[in-house]
């Protein structure tokens, strides 16, 4: 019925651009046993750089676009509460559709490549970031907003000088979740022909060294982005670390 397992048809679709080369270099027997081969890893580490760069690009672009869209939507919905339900429902459906399915649903319309991958990746960030921005803005103490208005800050000043700064921890939390999620989903972007670290992983699933290096880079990238957002947030919100009297 299927016979899907097997590397030939898989390679034909996925791992283009990633040339399998296991024979060259040291520790040939370890390599032919599909083992964990430090020597091979050292020799071939540079071949993972291009997919890694691509992965970073996919992730960062998706986050930037996703953040712009959902942040804008959240600011609109903050004053027009009725917008929240439809936005959450719509982005919720996008969030639910499996990424692999979405890639292939988009292929006939946008074709293979970066654009298709980005549309899908962006659509997964929307719910997460939107929800956290709205929750963060809702969490600003009402007496603080009242005092700000009472002192003569206009709507825009209240939003940018009081509400958004105070919502930053929650916004950053959303961005962190979106970042790690997007790194994970970007590892499937090669199905849409957009490269990334999924390419080398998929090209040689049985070779432990390969899976470890490419998978490890994925995990490290997720952690690095998570920590980066956390660091920026801490820099921007010094008051959250003030020790109470």
């Amino acid at each position: 019925m299927s016979g899907a397992l097997g590397s030939i048809p898989l390679l034909a679709q996925g791992g283009e651009g990633f040339v399998r080369n296991r024979e060259s270099g040291s520790g040939a027997s370890c390599v032919s046993d599909d083992g964990v081969c430090p020597a091979w890893i050292v020799d071939h580490f540079d071949r993972y750089m291009e997919p890694l760069g691509r992965h970073v690009l996919l992730t960062v672009v998706a986050l930037a676009i996703g953040f712009s869209i959902s942040f804008t939507l959240a600011l609109l919905a903050h004053r027009r509460r009725w917008l929240i339900a439809p936005v959450v429902q719509l982005t919720g459906i996008l969030y639910t559709i499996p990424s692999l399915a979405l890639f292939f649903l988009l292929l006939p319309i946008t074709g293979r490549g970066f654009l298709t991958a980005e549309i899908a990746l962006v659509s997964y960030t929307l719910l997460i970031i939107f929800r956290n921005v709205v929750t963060g803005l809702d969490g600003v103490p009402s007496d603080v907003v009242d005092a700000a208005r009472g002192m003569g800050l206009n709507d825009r000043q209240v939003l940018w000088r009081v509400e958004i700064p105070l919502a930053l921890p929650e916004i950053a939390a959303g961005l962190r979740i979106a970042a790690t999620t997007t790194v994970g989903l970007a590892s499937l972007a090669f199905f849409a022909g957009a490269g990334g670290l999924g390419d080398p992983i998929y090209a040689d699933l049985n070779f432990k060294s390969n899976v470890l290096v490419a998978g490890g880079l994925c995990v490290l990238l997720a952690i690095a982005l998570d920590l980066l957002v956390l660091a920026v947030q801490r820099l921007l919100t010094p008051w959250t670390r003030a020790v109470p009297a």
Partner: peptide, 30 residues
């Protein structure tokens, strides 16, 4: 309204101090 309010002191029970601003910055708001 905003201009009027800058000329009227406003104190409320919950203080409404800006948690993200220092005491000096809070006082310097208007």
């Amino acid at each position: 309204a905003a201009e009027l309010r800058r000329d009227i002191g406003y104190v409320i029970q919950q203080t409404g101090l800006f948690p993200h601003r220092t005491i000096a910055e809070n006082v310097a708001t208007v």
